[in-house]
Design a binder for these strands. Sequence first.
RNA 1: GGACCCUUAGCUCAGUUGGUUAGAGCGUUUCCUUGACAUGGAAAAGGUCACUGGUUCGAGUCCAGUAGGGUCCACCA
Length: 911
Amino acid sequence: MAEISKSYEPRDVEKKWYAAWQAAHAFAGRPAADRQPYCIVIPPPNVTGVLTMGHVLNNTLQDILVRRARLEGRAALWIPGTDHAGIATQTVVERELRKQKKTRHDFGREKFVEKVWDWRHEKGGIILEQLRRLGASCDWDRTHFTMDPAYSRAVLAVFVDLFRKGHIYRGKRLVNWCPASQTALSDEEVIMKPVNGTLWQVRYEIVDRPGEFISVKTTRPETIPGDVALAVHPDDPRYAGLIGKSVWRPLNRAQIPVVADTAVDREFGSGALKITPAHDKVDFEVGARHHLPVIDVLNADGTLNELAGPGLAGLDRFAGRKKAAELLKESGALVGEEAYQNNVGYSERADVPIEPRLTWQWWLKYPRVEEAKAAVRDGHIKFFPERWSKVYLHWLENIQDWCISRQLWWGHRIPVWYRKGLNKEKLTEADLKDPAKVHVSFDGPADKENWFQEDDVLDTWASSWLWPLATMGWPDETEMKKAGFDYFYPTTTLVTGPDIIFFWVARMIMAGLEFARPGAPLEKRIPFRNVYFTGIIRDHLGRKMSKSLGNSPDPLDLIDKYGADGLRFGIISIAPQGQDIRFVEDRIEFGKNFCNKLWNACRFRQLSGPAGDNASLAAIAARLDAAKFDADDHAILDRILATTRDLEKCFREFEFSAGIQALYGFFWNDFCDWYVEVSKAKLQSDETRANCLAIQDLVLRQTLLLLHPFIPFITEELWQLLGYGTADTFLMRDARLEDSSQLAAALENRGVRLDPAKTLRVSLLKELVSSARQLKASAGLAARSDLTYYLLNTAATNLVEVEDVARLLRLMGAKAFRVVGQAPENCPAIVTAAGTLYLEIKGTVDAAAEKQRLAKEQAALEKHIAATEARLANKAFTDKAPPAVIEGAKKQLAELQAKRAELERLLKALD
RNA sequence: GGACCCUUAGCUCAGUUGGUUAGAGCGUUUCCUUGACAUGGAAAAGGUCACUGGUUCGAGUCCAGUAGGGUCCACCA
């Protein structure tokens, strides 16, 4: 067995084990009749993306779940893959082309799509490689991509199916248009931002009352040429006589009517509203109600067109805005302007203001909305933290039809063909249902030459909403069988960010309910049973991490610096359930330090004695000798059992940072700081050595099992180095984590009955040791190890036993420790629960300093006693509090009073 | 406008059905390279739990309100 080196060097260890695991296909998830399934599908990252801290958190959590499930003996499967990310990817490739002064139109659709595929083949594997560095135990043989042929077939089959069911329709409506990407967007892809602009006041002259005007306020004067009316509130007395009259449109001068509509807010501005149906949602509705025409003055790229009139046509919308204001000023129509902040919708991807634009698009009326609500409301799908279910339900309550078509080239081209010669813009509802005019199918019409295909592609989310289905072979039955659909669906847990609860989570639920196992009960059709929402990682100032701010560290740099395990440990330790996380690198260093501590504790074990039979928990337990157990042995086994229980609870409740804290506290404080230290004495005696080594092995083995999901690399390495595995096996694949009851049973089988009295004694010994060190330090003798301590014990029972003394001496740093019945003279002292501890000092004691120290403690004690006395004196408390609490308070008071008496005695002795 | 979250030590954060004197890591001060680990050990300092009320024998924890910070939804031109 190789010797464990002095410090942990993650780089080679990580490389070695990841390669070994992969070569053995150890991550493969296969159905097994005698095992419970456990399945996670990865939230597919953008195919051209790179790893961010958000990915690190998200994927570490998934890996923790999947690795823990494996150790529990479940057939665990984690399906990886990537998303083609329509707009994002197309934009990236177009940006590259622009560097060569070209656009996608220079290549044409087919050539351009080829170029995107090239790009994908070149860059598409990066993020998955990076996930491997992190230790992600995905079943890589089952990697999927949303544009793979099989996946695409699923996407298009769903389109055809929903079209036939009447859920998908084509409609001309005002959509969110992104002038940069030149495509429609869904409502979810628009983010509102406050923008500082100008509110212009413009007057419209009344046609038959020259010299009289109606004024309106607008933030968008460039759309005035698109005005088709002014609207006022029907009950507004100011305009009562004007309804039905006409006014002069001040730009592209023409007569437009004044209409009455309740949509107008009388309080705002002058109470009159200009109606521009082509460029505003409310205006569009008003226009429809009053049968007004639509004048679209914008081109697809956001420039003004001929309808905007001379002076404006050809200008960009922002330049046009300025110009329009100037023109109005010249003509005297502009009567005021003020600084104004309003909310403007921005394209999430391109980060430019969107334009409401009237276009033909494909729409989806969501299926299974009511079932989707019920699935979460009735607990078939559980959200962690639970509060997100409210957000989810609220969205479903107000759900709007989904614009699923995109004017892009990169994506799933909509499987609709139109008969040649038809004008797409003039199709009626009846035409769309007439198979002689419109053909909808996966394969297309047999006589393709007589048809032309729809240009639009589908929204990326209209493919990723099928992720849990299509990654398991759906809808092809042979493929589903191969993928184990029957066994693994519904998946167990989805781990994702709350920012895509509408984009993805809700839609996957509806897709699952609609398409999985038709006719089966709801709980068989849902795509997952649990959804764990992570927090968002922010920088130390609380800002969202983003590329443009440059405030996101590169996770790969962090892995180089602290190791993947250190990064994982650190990030999970600061990620409580559902709270946002402020990233501080200190915590990652903390993770690295923990790994080094673990490493060295195992090194200590290795250096302490030869390995025994370590092949299983039973084998190690067989080496325990209950007759040789002392209090420390009892206490450490009690703690590892409790920690095992704690972790079980943490996994049940998705409390990972609590889990890691429990492991940290146990391992660092209980095992390293105490048990390893007391071991040093035990190991020197032939009498106790073997039993002590067996306990170390039992504890370390269990600790490695509990830690492995969090820090897989180092635990695998140590598992092997300490011989807990057998030849050709992995901790990650072949080991089984005994649960707390199995662990307790293994101990009992060896006659080990954990004794609470002994655990309690250890806490007394700890207090003694820490008091002894305190005495040394305050006497300025911290470095000395040749001191003598006396423990005054006048009680009938002796709390410190002979067998404890050797260990106490080592930990106190003392040469002698004596239990005495009479107080020694001239020694500084501390009152402990085990008796008063004295430090023998050569020379004179600084009585003043000693008095001060004791008096300070006395003051704190007095305060505490007073509070406890007051509590017990309160009749309401003694009447109403539970007996256990009252008993506890009484006992505590007695102890405090005894301590006070002893302190008073010590103070008196100093006088 | 509606909903939700946060405010605890200098910093980053825990605190699970209300119940001893509120914890951790980092940082700070002092001491220690003792044969697992200086990526370490020991000791110490540091908090009126944002504020104001309420419920309760008892509130960091439950309720209401206020202030500050954040997120989501809806948006009046």
